[in-house]
Design a protein around this nucleic acid. Structure first.
Length: 913
RNA sequence: GCCGUCUUAGCUCAGUGGUAGAGCACUCGCUUCACACGCGAUAGGUCACAAGUUCAAAUCUUGUAGACGGCACCA
């Protein structure tokens, strides 16, 4: 069989996913081992309006790698996919569509019709991301796909709401909340971001004191709110205003008289030391108002316009227009003291960047004191979730919980879970799971359901258990028993509070379990400019474009290679590296297959105890012979490297060190396997020996399995082409399933097959070859010029070099290798030393003595520098006394070795003169 | 204001109490029969700065400078 010369990712990506999905390989049911341990991950549900971005690609890569790895290790794995209903985003899309297509407002068509349109929108556009996940190769169980507005998940929401209400954990109350005038809904604190405005203004207004000529000056960034002032506050200890406390102000532009009060809240040092108090439009003022029993005067509508309480002149006017008008009117009245430029940070809506208005409004809240304790106790008593990386996330998470305020959960939207609360004509509230139940509670009075819906994150907070079938009516399912707690949650920092913490609390509260044992917090993928990717910066990189350009596998393994937990800059060159890596693997396999006539994967060819390679899941017996059946150094060495790599990769994945797993695989494959092993055995293979070919395709097969979690398409494509791969290689748990690398065993690695001796011998061979190549390169020896190499070495070196003479000759492009205990350096030789050999290459007529002298001098200088440093340490009595004995010995040995190498090189240098 | 992170080769980044690593770029040389998305060989770093702990610090502690993140506040 002959492969194309270069790997074409598209052709592999096209057919494998479909087969995997249709064969049911992704579902936990594929695992037929009744003893199999479960391993589960729930996806952080992407927003239905969304499309795949680089953050998703990174997180999905991590989740899929973990799932594929565990699946290959024989776990009953479930990666559960789904999407959330994204209340505000979908609402906005539908509103826009309605306006564009029919020039209508939502109120024109009514709630019921609007929701119908929203569902239609979701059906039409809501699967973008799920299709993109198929392209990514995500091995999610589509049969368990969930949506936060599915019937069962919605029932869960109602039941949770009712229970929390009944237990007093949810309440309805009048509070200052964050209002987004554009989306026309309340937002929770977490959905409000800060934006710094350099062109802000601080306006100083003079308020006349009643029965006096005096005025009192207050400063404000929101002059229009003065229309709602119900007091002016000063610090009780402020001498300047002492006499004014208790008097009243005649509030300009209104006919109101408001008191001057003393309150601790006011900082006498700041501004004028006098503060206008607007309890209905500022959270701090609200608290002051509570303390002093002030009127809460609401002067604004929920669309950002002023209301009639603001006065006829302002009624219906936009808040920003009103601001200008208030200032102008104060100016006319001679009551405007000044307007300063002022840099101000404003709260803005996270989604639409509209300036958020703090406003007094009656909303539903989740009380957070006891709720918070659920999560804190889990962390303190069980260390759950175990964050990775632990620093700094554990502390940030805990600190946030400790300072938590109540959570506003009502939203003034139609799309979402309508709050299961009904009101009678008198405003009495009846919270119930259904309208019937509410009617029952109300004793037949006419009821109207609350117009609002719940925060999308309220339903996402139930995701860890609602997705497994819990809905309050049903509280036990097989999936729940098997898969909760989930093993790991993989997500970004940005939703640690919005989602991670709430899922911990709600899962503990309703299922009495931790939602997930581990929590991998990924870094942010930044644009090339080192800034977070965003549309406004235009520095975004589309994962789909990367898939097209470099292939899915290259993109995936690149993402895994940068998944350290720190933020990382996107770098096309990095993906290119792994595109090249994919091609390297392709070509290595191509080489194997070109020579594979009559051979087939056979693990006994590598290992007398070859079971580990297939992954029986059995512990290796210590009595088994772990040496490969051949005695050839290259074979012993590659088997050792393979096992070491497998052990290290498993260890890295266990610690969520994806980047180091990738690096291990990359270097095993490229350096060990391609650069050395293939080259060492090439002659044997091209000569047509079936043993050597069997061995190399067997190694290839095992290496592909190790790579599969990161590069699913390429490895499947190649694995299918290797002769002798079949479902016989499957992990025992998947017996009977169609042949696929997905269900083959992940190599666990075998400690006893790590052969230190072979690795040391190979190091000697590699050193020798490298030194010879160095001489060739430095001396500009043409590749066609055959050289003769003299080597002086000890007995063990003699055996090593003699046994591998053909390979050394080939890789060093040498004509002959003369090995002895010692030699006299032939005339006009270039020379070098390794840790166990002296090398001389006679180059009569080819040698440039100046170049050689420089070369040797550089070598000597380098070695001498190292020796000087070592001897410095060794002559320090403190070091010799206090450092571990083995460390001292190690340095002494190295120093002795350097001494001998330097002497040799010095002699060689002299003999040139 | 509080909590925290980062500063390592030209670039992007790993790493770690005991001789500084990778990829890319650079230099030199290769149409070597898997691969030029390649092969071979070099070069390149007082690991931000200062002090301390230690036999030993790039690694631990403290401070300084710069970059950044979260939270709170902002009349």
């Amino acid at each position: 069989m002959e492969l194309d010369k270069a790997y074409d990712p598209k052709s592999a990506e096209e057919h494998h996913y479909k087969r995997w999905e249709e064969s049911g390989f992704f579902a936990p049911e594929i695992n037929t081992d009744p003893e199999a341990k479960p391993y589960s991950i729930v996806i952080p549900p992407p927003n239905v309006t969304g499309s795949l971005h680089m953050g998703h690609a990174l997180q999905h890569t991590i989740m899929d790698s973990l799932i594929r790895w565990k699946r290959m290790l024989g776990y009953r794995t479930l990666w559960l996919p789904g999407t959330d209903h994204a209340g505000i985003s979908v609402q906005r899309k539908v509103v826009e569509q309605l306006k564009k297509d029919e020039h209508k407002k939502p109120t024109d068509i009514g709630r019921e019709e609007f929701i119908k349109r929203a569902w239609a929108w979701k059906e039409q556009y809501g699967n973008t991301i799920t299709e993109q996940m198929r392209r990514e190769g995500a091995s999610v169980d589509w049969s368990r796909h969930r949506f936060t507005m599915d019937e069962s998940l919605s029932l869960a929401v109602r039941n949770v709401f009712c229970t929390l209400y009944d237990e007093g954990w949810i309440y309805r109350g009048l509070r200052i909340v964050n209002w987004c005038p554009k989306d026309r809904t309340v937002l929770s604190d977490l959905e409000v971001k800060e934006e710094t405005k350099k062109d802000g203004k601080l306006t100083y207004l003079k308020y006349p004191v009643k029965d006096s000529d005096q005025t009192i000056t207050v400063a404000t960034t929101r002059p229009e709110t003065m229309l709602g002032d119900t007091a002016v506050a000063v610090n009780g200890g402020d001498k300047r205003y002492k006499d004014l406390v208790g008097k009243t102000i005649l509030l300009p532009l209104t006919n109101r008289e408001i008191p001057i009060i003393a309150d601790e809240y006011v900082d006498a040092e700041f501004g004028t030391g006098a503060v206008k108090i607007t309890p209905a439009h500022d959270p701090n003022d609200y608290l002051v108002g509570e303390r002093h029993g002030l009127e809460q005067l609401l002067v604004m509508n929920l669309d950002g316009t002023m209301n009639e309480a603001a006065g006829v002149e302002f009624d219906g006017m936009d808040r920003f227009a009103a601001r200008e008008k208030v200032v102008a009117m104060f100016d006319e009245l001679g009551l405007l003291e000044k307007v300063d430029d002022y840099e101000i940070t404003l709260p803005v809506c996270e989604r639409c960047k509209t300036v958020v208005e703090p406003i007094l409004s009656e909303q539903w809240f989740v009380k957070m004191d006891e709720m918070r304790d659920l999560a804190l106790d889990l962390m303190r008593h069980e260390g759950s979730p175990h964050f990775s990386p632990r620093v700094p996330h554990e502390k940030v998470y805990t600190n946030w919980l400790e300072n938590l305020k109540d959570w506003t959960i009502s939203r003034q939207l139609w799309w979402g879970h309508q709050i299961p609360a009904w009101y009678d004509a008198d405003g009495n509230v009846f919270v119930a799971r259904t309208e019937e139940e509410a009617n029952e509670k109300a004793g037949g009075r006419d009821l109207t359901q609350d117009n609002d819906v719940l925060d999308t994150w309220f339903s996402s907070g139930l995701w860890a258990f609602s997705t497994f079938g819990w809905n309050g009516d049903v509280s036990e399912t097989d999936d729940l028993n098997s898969f909760l707690p989930t093993d790991v949650l993989v997500t970004g920092r940005d939703i640690m509070f919005l989602w991670v913490s709430r899922m911990m609390m709600l899962t503990k509260k309703f299922v009495d379990k931790t939602a997930f044992n581990d929590c991998v917090i990924t870094g942010t993928v930044l644009g090339k400019d080192g800034k977070p990717m965003s549309k406004s910066r235009n520095n975004g990189v589309d994962p789909i474009e990367m898939f097209d350009k470099f292939g899915v596998d290259a993109t995936r393994i690149y993402l895994a290679s940068i998944a350290t937990g720190a933020d990382i800059r996107w770098n096309d060159v990095g993906v290119e590296t792994y595109r090249n890596f994919a091609n390297k693997i392709w070509n290595a396999t191509r080489f194997c297959l070109m020579n594979a006539e009559g051979a087939a994967v056979d693990h006994a060819s590598l290992m007398n105890s070859g079971q580990w390679a297939v992954g029986s899941g059995q512990e290796e017996s210590l009595t088994t012979d772990h040496r490969p059946p051949t005695t050839a150094l290259a074979d012993r060495w590659i088997v050792s490297r393979l096992n070491r790599t497998a052990l290290d990769v498993n260890a890295a994945l266990n610690k969520y060190e994806f980047h180091s797993a990738v690096s291990l695989l990359y270097h095993f494959f490229w350096d060990d396997f391609c650069d050395w092993y293939i080259e060492l055995v090439k002659d044997e293979i091209t000569a047509g020996g079936p043993e050597a070919t069997t061995r190399i395709i067997t190694i290839m097969e095992i290496a592909l399995r190790m790579l599969h979690p990161f590069m699913p398409y390429l490895t499947e494509e190649l694995w299918q082409k290797l002769p002798g791969t079949s479902n016989a290689l499957h992990h025992a748990a998947y017996a009977g399933a169609d042949a696929t690398i997905m269900l083959a065993s992940f190599p666990p690695g075998d400690k006893l097959s790590v052969d230190e001796g072979a690795e040391e011998e190979m190091k000697d061979v590699i050193d020798l070859i490298t030194k010879i190549r160095n001489i060739r390169a430095e001396m500009n020896i043409k590749s066609s010029d055959k050289i003769i190499v003299h080597v002086a070495t000890g007995t063990s070196g003699y055996n090593i070099f003699n046994n591998n003479k053909p390979q050394i000759l080939k890789l060093a492009r040498a004509h002959d290798l003369i090995i002895g205990n010692q030699f006299t350096v032939p005339k006009a030789s270039a020379t070098a030393v390794t840790s166990n050999a002296k090398i001389a290459i006679p180059l009569e007529g080819l040698i440039d003595f100046d170049v050689e002298r420089t070369r040797l001098a550089n070598q000597i200088a380098k070695l001498t520098e190292e020796k000087t440093r070592l001897d410095g340490q060794l002559s320090n009595a403190n070091f010799v006394d206090r450092a571990p004995a083995e460390k001292v010995t190690e340095l002494r040995d190295r120093s002795t070795e350097l001494e001998s190498q330097i002497t040799t090189l010095n002699n060689n240098l002299e003999s040139l003169n």
